[in-house]
């Protein structure tokens, strides 16, 4: 709700300075919201070390690909990450595709940097890169411990 108020406030503010062109195809408010979403996304991806844009929630993924990302992170013991459900927010759903220049959901960010979608995370998991990338974030993969135990 707060963010909604913030959105509208910001929109009102910027609209004041925009001269009204004749025959606008897209209402100014929509343009303004889209620009705000891009700005918000820039902050969202940096706020947490691991950020996932997905369909559903980690507790209840609504798509097989989103579920795969959740399961991979879980295997590595990564429980503490920011997950944004794009099904609850159409603006976010379209906005994040534009922001990342990536056509599909899920999308994964580490330290504000785009990592990839489900295929890439899966391949990083399989070839061991994910353990290294998590280490760079200061996250110790739980798979390292389970490997030791099995030896």
């Amino acid at each position: 709700m707060n963010s909604l108020i913030r959105h509208s406030a910001r929109c009102l503010r910027s609209v004041v300075f925009v001269a009204k062109p004749a025959n606008v195809a897209v209402p100014g408010r929509l343009l303004c919201e889209a620009a705000d979403t891009q700005k918000d996304l820039g902050e969202m991806v940096k706020k947490d070390k691991v950020v996932v844009f997905m369909k559903g929630t980690p507790a209840q993924p609504m798509c097989g690909f989103s579920n795969a990302v959740v399961q991979i992170l879980r295997m590595h013991g990564v429980d503490n990450y920011a997950a944004y459900n794009v099904l609850e927010d159409q603006e976010l759903r379209q906005g994040v595709k534009l922001f990342s220049n990536w056509p599909t959901i899920p999308q994964v960010y580490f330290n504000g940097e785009f990592v990839g979608g489900c295929d890439i995370l899966l391949q990083m998991h399989q070839n061991g890169d994910l353990v290294d990338e998590l280490k760079k974030l200061g996250i110790h993969s739980a798979l390292l411990d389970s490997e030791k135990e099995s030896k």
Binding site: F65, N101, W102, P103, T104, F114, V115, G116, G117, C118, D119, I120, Q123, M124
Partner: peptide, 26 residues
């Protein structure tokens, strides 16, 4: 790197992607 390869495929098929719901690639 993998991300760049996937981006190459995505941009090659950017028009088609608008009509595709799910896409897996190797």
């Amino acid at each position: 790197p993998l991300l760049q390869r996937h981006r190459m495929v995505n941009s090659c098929l950017s028009e088609e992607m608008k009509h595709i719901h799910a896409f897996e690639q190797k």
